[in-house]
Design a protein around this nucleic acid. Structure first.
Lengths: 208, 208
DNA sequence: ATCATATATGAACAAGTGTTAATTTGTACT
DNA sequence: AGTACAAATTAACACTTGTTCATATATGAT
């Protein structure tokens, strides 16, 4: 028979599987993505998948790991925060720029969608989101803001509440971008919103 | 055989189906919920479902409608906004209280979860969210804030940005509540956060 | 050239999917 | 009591699901 099967060595196929699976999970969720769909996207039969992953969940977990190993989980050292926070506005700017960069990154976009879809259905993912996104960012922001208060750069308020407020804004913006992209609509109107909200927030907390 | 089948007249069974389906959709999503699971929860066979709904999607749509016919889609009249906005803080308080009430309402909680799960997978739901949650609330908030600026009650900023900022905060709080509830954790720490963020926001925009 | 190994295929499986058809059973009206 | 009708059952369907097993084929080291 015309069996023109191609062979890939190393972890090449494994990578291709992850890429294909990520795309499908981001569009149809875990349950909506079958191993056959993944295999078809890679260009192999479903049975060949099992040479690289022990089962469907293992594929998902390999991708889920990346969700939080991305920029927004980066742990900043205390020294870094100390140094940067004293500069005041630059601190907020840096955070916002990084957040915006992530938001418009194609790869990260897919990971965000997977997270949103599975957040309510997958306890592990929920735990990861809480610790590695929420708490990590709140810690970063609140300690930075606390230092600014000590330095007399910004108004004295509860740093925790302030951090929550700002992270909430940013998250909602990020979600809006994903919603628009899902409908293949333009996101240009939102691209300046990050800066606008940052300026507004800064104008309200800073002491002139 | 012992066929102790029970009969329900009127739309009774139909209601039971919707209740059962809502619960399951909120836990496992659309694809994770089979018609057999729904039927089992109601206490009937799956074929009996088709006496009340033409197919699975029809059940989902019946529930999806409710997602946006809930409090947060309530259209407020311009007169109402005019009157309330002039009172300043009460306006924000009313919005926040309503939002918080919704957040802690059991029924609405399920609808919110369904929305979050399907938002990225269902275009119709996405459209509904955008128009009936996002745009509707932004319109309400921004026109209220605009009036306050005219009245000299609050600082002069872009009302649209301000509205986005506040809605974003509230949405993120609402999501946090759902995440905690999904893990059956306590939400008491968040119950005061609504007021705290409201006070903070007001303190920053108001002219003392 | 041989051979071990990694990687692919094809076929099959048991279980679950949404949906339909034929039939039985309860309820209300005459 | 008889009848019409709504609402339930049982059984079956075609299809998809995740996974496994035996088998075939390409690659690299010897």
């Amino acid at each position: 028979m015309s069996d023109t099967r191609e062979f890939h060595k190393g972890g090449e196929t494994k990578k291709l599987i992850e890429v294909a699976a990520m795309e499908l999970f981001a569009e149809q969720g875990y349950k909506g993505t079958s191993v056959r769909k993944i295999a078809a996207k890679v260009g192999i039969r479903e049975s060949a998948l099992y040479n690289h992953f022990s089962n469907k969940e293992a594929i998902f977990l390999a991708i889920a790991e990346r969700v939080f190993s991305s920029p927004f989980a980066q742990q900043k050292t205390d020294e870094f925060i100390q140094e940067y926070a004293k500069k005041g506005k630059s601190f907020l700017q840096k955070f916002t720029t990084e957040f915006k960069l992530m938001t418009f990154d194609h790869n990260h976009e897919k990971l965000f969608r997977i997270m949103l879809i599975e957040l309510m259905q997958n306890e592990e993912l929920r735990g990861g989101f809480w610790q590695q996104f929420h708490e990590s960012n709140i810690r970063f922001l609140s300690s930075g803001l606390f230092i600014m208060m000590q330095e007399g750069i910004i108004r004295s308020e509860d740093p925790m509440t302030l951090a929550n407020v700002y992270l909430g804004q940013m998250f909602y913006l990020r979600m809006q971008v994903s919603l628009l992209k899902a409908d293949k609509k333009s996101t240009t109107s939102l691209s300046t919103a990050f800066e606008r909200q940052m300026e507004l927030f800064w104008g309200m907390i800073s002491i002139k």
